[in-house]
Amino acid sequence: MLKMNNIVMTYDPGGINELCVFNDFSFGVKKGEFVSLVGSNGSGKTTLLNIICGTLAQTSGEVYIAGENMSHKKDYYRARRIGRVLQNPSLGTCPNLTIAENMALAENKGKKFDFTFCINKKRISAYRDMVRELSLGLEDKMDVKMGSLSGGQRQAVSLLIATMIPIDFLILDEHTAALDPLTSETIMHLTDKTIKEKKLTAVMVTHNLRYAVEYGDRLVMMDKGRVVMDISGKQKQATAVEDVLKIFNDISIECGN
C-alpha cells in the first residue's frame, strides 16, 4: 500500500542550520495493516507523515501509494487517496460551517466542485445516521457550527469526515494528544472501530505507548531517522507496555536525555 524507497530528507541543505532527518530511509506498509508509530521528539515521525502526504518534499527518494508513484505529486493530489486526522481538533473541519455542510463537502471529495447545490436534502438523514454511530448525541446538531463543539466532538467528526469516502490510507497524527484522558480513550476506541469496519490501512503516530501496544497489528519505533523496533502479529501480542518503555528509555539515555 505504501512504499518509501531510499528517502533522504535534509532541512536547509547547505545552510548553517542544515539538518539531516532521513538518510537512505526505506519503509513500507502492507494493505490492511494498522501501524502504530512511536518515537521521541525529533525522531522523524512527523517528517515521515509530511513526506507521505506531500506537505514536505523529500530531498531525494521515492514514495509509492497504492502502486502509484507520488514522489513529486502535490499534496492535494495525494489527498484523493489519503485521509488525515491531525493533533489539533480544529484543523480537521471548517469551524464556521455546520456539521452537515462539512460532511457534504467531504462527501464530494475527489469529485467535481461545480455549481450544483452542495447540500442534498436527501443525504441529510444518511449523514445523521453516520453521526449517530459516534454516540456523542451530535445527530440533533447537524445545523450547529463545528466551531461550537468541544475538542473531542470535533475530533470524532474529523475522523468520520476523513474516512467518509473510500480512501486507501488513513493517517493519524497524534490525533488524541490534545484531548483529556477519557475523551482520548473514546476517540481511540472509535478510531479502532472505524479502521476495522472500513478495513482501512492506517498509520498512527502516538506518544501514548499503551495505545501503541493495545491497538494496531504492527508497532514501529523510530529514533534519529531510523527504525529501531518493528514488531507485528504474535510477537506484538506478546509485547507489553513495559517492554516498549524499556527500549524507549534505553534510546533516550543513549541520547543523554
Binding site: Y76, A79, T116
Partner: peptide, 24 residues
C-alpha cells in the same frame, strides 16, 4: 450554496481542509 461556493467559505475558514478535499 453550491459546491464551489461552499469551497470558498472552506478556504477562508481552514485551508488544510480544502487540501484534504483534494482541491488546490
Amino acid at each position: 450554496k453550491t459546491k464551489y461556493g461552499m469551497l470558498l467559505f472552506a478556504v477562508g475558514d481552514n485551508e488544510r481542509f480544502v487540501t484534504s478535499l483534494a482541491r488546490d
